[in-house]
Design a protein around this nucleic acid. Structure first.
Lengths: 339, 339
DNA sequence: TGCGATTGATTAATCGTTCAATTGAAACGG
DNA sequence: CCGTTTCAATTGAACGATTAATCAATCGCA
């Protein structure tokens, strides 16, 4: 089907080694006469020869590809802007360096290493990398470098390079904002189902710490939320005097806005709401959502840069990096009122 | 570094052929006794062996990877929601079939074929595929199937399968909407610089046709817009009696909104604005943007499905598919007023 | 018993490159 | 004139898998 090196060599009447050297040889050891080199180049052009990356990769050179693991990739609810900013950041680093990005399909946990270690990718950016023992096991056996993005606190284990935002400081900003407005009874809303995503665990703990710092034991004030109207209605109807809700993502917070609207609960008059990961989407909610902002574009760009260094065999200058968060105050928060 | 088939064979005391057959053999020709098979499987597990995809691909089996060409990938201004919906659609088709998606870096036009034909990908989804002679040449030489997405009208050439929305009908919807409101002098805004993107050309022509159908020669009423304030100011100040602007993308229209705001031009009172490609972003502009909607998620999903069929060597049931458009009327259009 | 068919397993060629080792010839120095 | 160096070019062994071809042993059956 495709034209091979051998065919070019045959057509030009030279050895395959000569063709290989001329077309891809490292500068130093080119032992081919100029006229021969020209002939080879012309023949390759004429036959429209393109080198087979699989063969080159197999022989030991690079594949110029890095992988991306991103759970629930197709699920727009993850936050489409989060994803495109992440991809944009990764891309601006990879593409100018002639690297491609492969998005790995979601796999049963046992098969992940098989997909990573199959020789196709030189390294992997692993988003929301879990901390369970089985995953840790796989990471230890992984033959290529891993950069963990948005995967909790770095010091919990050695191995991958971690890139994240300062979740604790971000949550503290949100709590401080609410506290200063006068809120004392605040509900923290986790992800759906079990709480297993590292950043969700981290933000939850940070919330408890921030409240404890202010003398409040908020242990009972976190919820695994099922995103349905009944949960919200029960919570609201039970008369628990929450005046503010802090969602672990922008999406979590925006669903709360929807539920509140359905229940006729006014935001921010009756209830203040804060999200995490401020994107332009927060501008389009009603009311506009106050949210913590993490610099995901920069984080992703940095992660890609570190990964490239690692694939070159360099130890990166600084191991793991934590980016600062800021708070974008919009219209979903105000001083609490008595119900 | 990684464990190879050979090492597994050695450790188990069998031939490499036996290992290969047991671990990956097609159901029919497995000629290995059960106890041996078990031994082999156990050994592979114990040594944590993972097959090398490069070697397998080289030998002739599939790479289970398809490529995506998307110009200006890192440029968020392309419309981040357009991109994530596209990726979501492609992903939902590919991933359940255990295919991966590789995003190819932007390349000088001459090198594109080299990247496509290097054996790493089985097929490619080429967004905004250009129609110039050089690109056509490359396509003819391409050894793997191509599906063109958002790349103009199918019948212009044979070869790739085309997936697109009905640009003409979409533009007609927009023009009809404006016309019915009473607008007669409408400006169409193309992309930056030269007009080369196939869909932009198509939409421009559709605009001229829709106007001509209503007895208006709009030949002079299209602009290559440089997105700067001066252009808009000049247009506005020159007293050209445009009462409505139709942008070739959602982004083009939203920039017009920004310029209008900077100039103190009121939308929609002084000027009606319509965009193409209605996304949730259109909800966050001020005022909310009226726009034509193309079902990009479905289009992308279909494109991926067709590509998978093509890589299996099947001729897809229907060659090229055109998806219908709808119009999302929001707050940026109203009846024209006299200035 | 003898012969073909079947089963279980191995050998070796192959995919398209790269590159260390090798060859052959020309140039050079004494 | 011969041994050594330099240069140009080739040979052939990997890389890690797949698989057609081959082989040896066993089985079935007339």
């Amino acid at each position: 089907m495709s034209v091979t090196l051998k065919e070019v060599a045959l057509a030009a009447g030279v050895s395959t080694a000569a063709v290989s050297k001329v077309l891809h040889g490292r500068g130093s050891s080119i032992r081919v006469s100029p006229e021969r080199a020209r002939l080879i180049r012309e023949t390759a052009e004429r036959l429209s020869y393109y080198p087979n990356a699989l063969a080159r990769g197999l022989r030991g050179s690079r594949t110029h590809t890095v992988g991306l693991i991103f759970e629930n990739f197709g699920d727009i609810s993850t936050g489409p802007l989060y994803l495109s900013q992440l991809l944009g950041g990764v891309g601006t680093k990879l593409f100018p360096n002639h690297y491609r990005l492969t998005i790995l399909p979601e796999l049963p946990h046992d098969d992940v290493l098989g997909a990573i270690a199959d020789g196709q990718i030189e390294g992997v950016i692993w988003c929301k990398l879990a901390r369970d023992e089985r995953t840790q096991q796989q990471i230890r056996n992984c033959p290529i470098p891993i950069v963990a993005l948005n995967a909790g606190r770095p010091e919990a284990l050695c191995g991958p390079v971690y890139v994240n935002c300062d979740n604790e400081a971000g949550i503290e900003l949100a709590v401080e904002h609410l506290w200063n407005l006068g809120h004392r009874k605040i509900l923290f809303v986790n992800e759906l189902q079990e709480v297993t995503t590292p950043d969700c665990i981290l933000r939850r703990e940070a919330f408890l710490d921030s409240m404890a710092k202010r003398g409040v034991d908020a242990t009972g004030d976190t919820r695994v939320w099922e995103w349905n109207l009944y949960e919200f209605r029960d919570m609201w109807a039970s008369g628990e005097p929450y005046t503010a809700i802090l969602g672990w993502t922008e999406r979590a917070a925006s669903v709360i806005l929807e539920r509140a609207a359905e229940m006729g609960v006014r935001v921010p008059e009756d209830l203040s709401v804060v999200g995490f990961d401020s994107t332009p989407f927060c501008e389009s909610t009603t009311p506009k959502l106050t949210a913590v902002k993490q610099p995901i574009f920069d984080m992703a760009q940095h992660a890609a840069g570190v990964l490239l260094e690692l694939t070159q065999g360099q130890r990166p200058a600084n191991d793991s990096v934590i980016f600062p968060c800021t708070l974008d105050v919009r219209d979903s928060t105000t001083i609490p009122s008595q119900r």
